[in-house]
């Protein structure tokens, strides 16, 4: 089995990603107690987005796999965000 066909991630890289995820989790818990009004939600979502990106790229191997998976995933996420955006055309102006 050739390396370029199946990238094998090392234990170490997985543990590093886990460490990053735990730090981000701690950060998002810590930041809750800081009062920022509407920005609280934004920050929480950004941190969650960063965690999700880590999981997608490393744990789910998007970084190493055929690029088509990453493209599809990005497309699906964009599609969902657009649907959300269009829905709020109604709710923001009702």
């Amino acid at each position: 089995m050739s390396e370029e066909k199946h990238h094998i991630s090392s234990y170490k890289s997985h543990l590093l990603v886990l460490l990053a995820l735990l730090i981000l989790t701690a950060a998002s818990v810590a930041v809750t107690s800081v009062e920022m009004g509407a920005y609280n939600t934004l920050v929480a979502m950004l941190l969650a987005g960063a965690k999700a990106t880590l999981v997608l790229l490393w744990f789910m191997h998007l970084r190493f796999d055929n690029k088509i998976y990453a493209i599809f995933t990005a497309f699906v996420i964009v599609l969902f965000l657009l649907v959300l955006f269009v829905t709020f055309f109604d709710y923001s102006y009702r």
């Binding site: 657009l82 649907v83 269009v86 055309f89 109604d90 923001s92 102006y93 009702r94």
Partner: peptide, 22 residues
């Protein structure tokens, strides 16, 4: 086709802006 669903709802009580976007 994903972003035009609202045209089934032009009289549903949606906001005006959503209506003309759709």
């Amino acid at each position: 086709g994903y972003f035009v669903w609202g045209h089934h709802m032009f009289t549903s009580g949606m906001s005006g802006r959503a209506l003309y976007a759709f």
